[in-house]
Design a protein around this nucleic acid. Structure first.
Length: 336
DNA sequence: CATATTTGACCGCT
DNA sequence: AGCGGTCAAATATG
């Protein structure tokens, strides 16, 4: 399932969070069981199922990290998300202790040779054949490494199982101010959506790939090649919220990431909890986000930004250092 | 010309 | 010694 791994041992915390969600959902389900809305019950049930799967997967992934942390070649994980060893210290900078986050995502629209844009600008600095892997791994660093000393890097590698998916490992936090890119992405998405709306049967490849790119950039790959929209929720997003990102001016429904047109927020019942960023210059385009993780974990990395690229949100899902460490559990022993 | 990518060499770790 | 990660010169791109 959701292959998002926090290398600082936050998985236990995530699992706890997920289990909390499950409990909450079960409670709701109980309330509605005798009631009128069988649809609601179905919805809740599928939420529970989906979150449970995520939790299980988290546990599996984590235990494979714990148990087979030596070399990647012999540690073929159940999910394809953890085949890389921990980043090792090399020449210049110690990378040990960097935050590590793994995401599996589909290729940018139409099977490009790179995953969808994540809102940051990256500069490739190397690639390597990796033992035991079918595809080479590419290494990227933040474009602003020199100008702003941003130490964020990422590694991108096609998965063995499905070459249209990429495993992306993010290392370190962005310390750069990267608002332009995110704003551009949002604006572009809004523009593309506006275009699509204007010409109803717009099939222009440019627009399509832009939208595809956007939507796939917002998808955390879960278990298999075929991903249910229900399962594409990012870890920890609150239950009834259908999508991690909502662009109020984008009427396109793609992969459950974008919302129906007239409702600014598609979350039916909890939308009033959502934080709303007021800040795109165009008042028509508003980025909204569920309050929970973003409010709680939105950390330091990019300052006071009001918009969230994919990376920002993934970052927001991370706990600040030390936070919830007390809740960290020894997953393998927890399982036994 | 500035900036990005490619690619073999290099380095540190196991 | 082998591997993965990075450097940096050469090359490509705009």
């Amino acid at each position: 399932m959701a292959s998002v791994v926090d290398g600082n041992g936050g998985s236990g915390g995530l699992v706890v969070t997920e289990l909390g969600h499950i409990k909450e959902l079960v409670t709701q389900l109980e309330v509605h069981l005798g009631g009128s809305s069988s649809d609601l019950c179905k919805h809740l049930a599928s939420q529970i199922s989906s979150i449970t799967e995520r939790s299980i997967s988290l546990l599996i992934t984590t235990s494979s990290l714990h148990g087979a942390r030596k070399r990647s070649a012999d540690a073929i994980p159940l999910s394809d998300a953890s085949d890389a060893p921990f980043v090792k210290a090399t020449k210049k900078r110690k990378t040990m202790g960097k935050k590590r986050r793994e995401v599996t995502m589909s290729s940018a629209g139409g099977g490009a040779d790179h995953p969808a844009d994540d809102g940051h600008s990256w500069r490739k600095y190397g690639q390597k054949e990796i033992l035991g892997a079918k595809h080479r791994r590419a290494y990227y660093r933040c474009t602003h490494r020199h100008s702003q000393g941003c130490a964020a890097t990422k590694q991108v590698q096609r998965t063995d199982e499905d070459p249209t998916f990429f495993e992306v490992v993010y290392l370190g936090d962005h310390t750069c101010v990267q608002r332009a890119a995110a704003a551009a992405a949002v604006a572009a998405a809004g523009q593309a959506a506006a275009d699509a709306q204007a010409h109803e049967h717009n099939d222009s490849p440019g627009t399509r790939s832009l939208l595809q790119s956007l939507s796939s950039s917002l998808t955390v790959k879960t278990e298999g090649p075929a991903v249910e929209p229900e399962q594409q929720l990012l870890l920890g997003w609150d239950a009834p919220a259908p999508a991690p990102f909502c662009f109020s001016s984008t009427p396109v429904t793609a992969s459950g990431c974008l919302v129906p047109e007239h409702s600014p927020f598609s979350a039916p019942s909890t939308s009033d909890n959502w934080g709303v960023s007021p800040a795109t210059s165009d008042s028509n385009r508003v980025v909204s986000f569920p309050p929970f993780e973003v409010a709680l974990y939105r950390s330091s990395s990019c300052g006071d930004d009001v918009q969230f690229g994919f990376e920002e949100v993934m970052s927001a899902l991370d706990r600040p250092d030390g936070f919830l460490d007390d809740l960290d559990i020894d997953v393998p022993s927890f399982f036994e």
